[in-house]
């Protein structure tokens, strides 16, 4: 999966417009990054990568890049 594809998938998961995110985007700066968004990320990792992401890992995310780093099958 290319970085562009990863960004697109995160945007889709967080219900953001295409091109909103860069790897450097700070998650806390996004209005949409609420508890529901975190649950949606858990589902995305489960559906797309078959990966179980723990609450602590989600809490440790600071930038979009942190999410992308986990997006490997």
């Amino acid at each position: 999966m290319t970085n562009q594809e990863k960004l697109a998938l995160i945007e889709e998961t967080l219900e953001l417009d295409e091109g909103t995110l860069t790897p450097e985007t700070i998650l806390e700066d996004l209005d949409k990054y609420d508890s529901m968004a975190k649950l949606s990320l858990i589902v995305m990792f489960d559906d797309e990568f078959g990966k179980k992401v723990e609450g602590a890992e989600i809490k440790a995310f600071e930038t979009v890049n942190d999410i992308m780093a986990l997006m490997e099958k």
Binding site: S35, L39, I42, V43, D46, K52, V53, E54, G55, A56
Partner: peptide, 25 residues
Amino acid sequence: CSDGIERSLYDIFMDGTSVFSFSIS
């Protein structure tokens, strides 16, 4: 608490994100 909500030790706490992850895996 870790979820940003104020409580005392007498209130029930749930780590919603972890419990959700548990529930769907």
